[in-house]
Design a protein around this nucleic acid. Structure first.
Length: 452
RNA sequence: GACCCUAUCGUCUAGCGGUUAGGACACCGCCCUUUCACGGCGGCGGCACGGGUUCGAGUCCCGUUAGGGUCGCCA
């Protein structure tokens, strides 16, 4: 950070068709560090494995990063490997950098660091232990494993001519002027190879910061199939990207002052490498949901509407016949009840369908003969309310209850059941206001017809 | 098998030689309340184990155990 040179960090995913939550967190930490230091965040697509690379797979990565709000200063400008890009260190797709790799292999051969064997090219690895200076873990002295003792050299170009990860990764970091490599701890021991490669090129290696991994709740490695492992899980509705970003910041990094709900702007200010934790963290969906609810409650109206649009789609509620103001007002009544929405998306259906399915248990309790005249009287009172606003509706209900000599709750419950079919939901008076007089009276009439 | 990293409530974490070991999520009570939720108050619950060093160890050292990672013509 106190360097003269500007920080250049990168996220270098392989297009596999999905974006792992751990990968998203790695991208986030790199982005945070770049933004904190005023440096550059570079996106590089490691698509050397041509067989499984598709534009759709690239889209998943680009869209995932955009959804999270992680903008890159250099990198692809489209999902097309041969398409336009931002930045002067391109191409940013490895599949387009063959000439560079060819040149660099020749350089190693010329220097005596590489040789051919069985049609492949191998790197002459040193046998002495290599010290990996890591900004998170400290100095790590890496010795050869017994397996490596037998043959410390490793392949950098496959016999089919394709360069391997260790090689292209180093060459690209070198060519792109990367100053800090922030990546998962699963790369820590392999970093010895990378340092040896940098040294062979006669270049000072970048600084390394290996961040802990994200594990399943049971402590096992989180892989593709595990719950919550794919970022796509959060993009489909329910989750505000702000909440996901906030949660990810807190996995493996701590502001050290017990703060938890922190807008990313503030994290950018305070984020730094020394505060990164050294131990792996388990993924806790419950806590993410809590954070999500915190955000849903306080998000600006526009953002709230955007996120809740996902709720509707996900719960297959058809709101096409309703104008945006109505939809917005309806969902706003769930602002501080996001938990209901995420646990049971159907709770919002009554706003968009007149086919009310009454909760059978509640019917037994609330649609009883005694309540018929009461509900009828309330209906008449509501019919007089103009304008049809929450405050006035509450006053009308309270007044009616008084005249009837019953507590407000006696009227509240049957009314809620009549209008929503449920026993839980938003504030009664506010939901009535949104529904509007016509729908409310019609629904109460329908309920009255049900009661014997 | 070898090499590397890690170890505080169930989970995420604060702690950087002297603390009644703090906070958050979850859970359980009570309060608030037209439901649910929010909020408030309280409760449950932790320094993996064994040796050192020290007047004193969650904090430092060593070992054990456990978890994770790596050793590929995958990335």
């Amino acid at each position: 950070m106190a360097n003269n040179t500007s920080v250049r960090v990168r996220f270098a995913p392989s297009p596999t068709g999905y974006l792992h939550i751990g990968g998203a967190r790695t991208a986030l930490f790199n982005w945070l560090y770049a933004r904190h230091t005023g440096g550059q965040f570079i996106l590089r697509i490691e698509d050397t494995d041509a067989a499984r690379n598709t534009q759709e797979a690239v889209d998943v990565i680009l869209n995932g990063l955009r959804w999270l709000g992680l903008d890159w200063d250099e990198g692809p400008a489209s999902h097309d490997a041969t398409g336009p890009s931002k930045g002067t260190h391109g191409p940013y797709f490895q599949s387009q950098r063959s000439d560079i790799y060819r040149r660099r292999v020749q350089e190693l051969k010329d220097k005596g660091f590489a040789y051919e064997q069985d049609g492949a090219v191998k790197f002459r690895m040193q046998r002495e232990p290599i010290v990996i200076p890591d900004l998170v873990v400290g100095d790590v002295r890496r010795e050869l494993t017994d397996r490596e003792q037998e043959d410390p050299d490793f392949v950098i170009i496959r016999s089919d001519g394709q360069p391997v990860f260790h090689f292209v990764n180093v060459v690209d970091d070198l060519e792109m002027g990367i100053t800090h490599v922030i990546r998962g701890e699963d790369h820590l021991t392999n970093t010895a190879k990378h340092i040896a490669l940098f040294q062979a090129f006669g270049v000072e290696p970048p600084q390394y910061a290996h961040i802990p991994l994200i594990l399943n709740p049971d402590g096992t490695k989180m892989s593709k199939r595990d719950t919550g492992a794919s970022l796509a899980t959060y993009q489909g509705g329910y989750f505000a990207p702000e909440a996901v970003v906030n949660y990810l910041c807190l996995l493996g990094w701590s502001p050290k002052d017990n703060r938890e709900v922190m807008p990313v702007r503030e994290v950018v200010e305070r984020f730094d490498l020394p505060q990164i934790l050294r131990h792996n963290a388990r993924f806790d969906m419950t806590k993410l949901q809590w954070l999500n609810h915190e955000y849903l409650r306080t998000l600006p109206a526009e953002r709230y509407d955007a996120v809740t649009a996902g709720f509707l789609k996900r719960s297959s509620i058809d709101a096409s016949g309703f104008d945006t103001a109505y939809i917005s007002a309806a969902l706003a009544t769930f602002r501080d009840k996001a938990k209901q929405l995420s646990e049971d998306p159907g709770v919002a259906r009554f706003y968009f369908s007149d086919a009310i399915a009454y909760d059978p248990e509640a019917v037994k309790k609330d649609f009883v003969p005694d309540n018929k005249p009461r509900l009828g009287k309330l209906r008449d009172a509501f019919a007089q309310v103009e304008p049809f606003k929450a405050d006035a509706l509450q006053a009308a209900l309270t007044k009616t209850a008084g005249e009837l000599g019953v507590k407000a709750g006696v009227l509240v419950h049957p009314t809620r059941l009549a209008c929503t079919g449920r026993t839980v939901g938003p504030s009664l008076y506010h939901l009535l206001e949104v529904l509007g007089k016509e729908r409310v009276l019609q629904r109460i009439d329908a309920a009255l017809a049900q009661i014997k």
